[in-house]
């Protein structure tokens, strides 16, 4: 026994000889001589993504910040990724894993276009819907978590399903999936979701909601998130997906901020003098 816990239970070189790296997976044997290692924590991260279903489509938003811990590292990172004119994926969590998934989705899109043709109404019908895309992503995420090599993201997938009804669903790093009229990841689940549920309490309310009201609710939530989420910023991307396609804006600024409430805050909230 020695004082190096990391050595406990491992074969000692002086007794067994050094490890033969040939037994490692091919990809690792030559390069590093060390075993495969997996993500244990996210590095550069994006914060909340929020989305609402309305009567003819979905509105989704995420800010343009990629943080490195508490450092606001990259301020022009677009976390809403459109897919084949029909869907948008919003990414929270690790940005490098987002970029991996984006590359994966682009190659998938290219394959889809090769097999179905593109840029005409008839072949567009055969393209993957947002629902198909969500199923695909959920399998990718679940496979990776089952391999103990997760993609450290929370995703919102939005668009239309085959029958033309608005579609909104989420997947996370564990492969957990769920769908609701309003969804929010990260801090947004605490701060934005209650506001959105007030506007859209159920599926019926979502069918009655028009585009303007949906956009207004989402913008209001982005503002609240900027007030209280320390890993957020005031420039964001917002996309509206309906049967006419994706309308993505990537340089929106928060409007009508009021920091008047900040003056009232003393201490941690209960302090009065």
């Amino acid at each position: 026994m020695n004082h190096f816990p990391e050595a406990w239970g491992r074969p000692r070189d002086d007794i067994y000889g050094s490890y033969n790296p040939q037994f490692l997976p091919n990809s690792h044997a030559q390069q590093s001589g060390h075993p495969t290692t997996h993500t244990q924590s996210p590095i550069v991260t994006g914060t909340s993504v929020i989305a609402v279903k309305y009567k003819d489509g979905v509105v989704i938003a995420a800010d343009n910040l990629a943080s490195y811990g508490s450092l606001a590292r990259f301020t022009d990172v677009h976390r809403l990724k459109p897919f084949n004119k029909k869907a948008v994926v919003g990414f929270g969590g690790d940005v490098s894993d987002m970029q991996y998934l984006d590359r994966l989705l682009n190659s998938l899109d290219v394959k889809e276009n090769y097999s179905h043709g593109h840029d005409d109404a008839e072949s567009d019908k055969a393209l993957m819907s947002a629902k198909n895309l969500h199923t695909y992503l959920s399998k990718v995420m679940y496979k990776r978590r089952s391999d103990f090599n997760p993609l450290w993201n929370a995703l919102l997938v939005c668009g239309l399903s085959e029958d033309g009804t608005p579609f909104l669903a989420s997947v996370d790093l564990l492969g957990t999936t769920f769908s609701a009229p309003t969804l929010a990841t990260g801090f947004g689940a605490h701060l934005a979701q209650p506001i959105l549920r007030r506007v859209v309490p159920d599926e019926a309310a979502s069918k009655a909601l028009d585009k303007e009201a949906a956009v207004a609710a989402v913008k209001e939530c982005m503002k609240v998130l900027f007030y209280r989420d320390a890993r957020s910023m005031n420039e964001y991307s917002i996309a509206v997906v309906d049967k006419s396609g994706v309308d993505l804006k990537q340089k929106e600024k928060l409007e009508g901020q009021s920091w008047a409430f900040a003056e009232q805050i003393k201490g941690y909230g209960t302090q009065t003098v």
């Binding site: 020695n2 004082h3 190096f4 990391e6 050595a7 491992r10 074969p11 000692r12 070189d13 002086d14 007794i15 050094s18 490890y19 590093s32 060390h34 075993p35 290692t37 244990q40």
Partner: peptide
Amino acid sequence: APTYSFAAAQSAS
């Protein structure tokens, strides 16, 4: 101290 398999990889993490 005796060396052991993957010592370098372990100390990195």
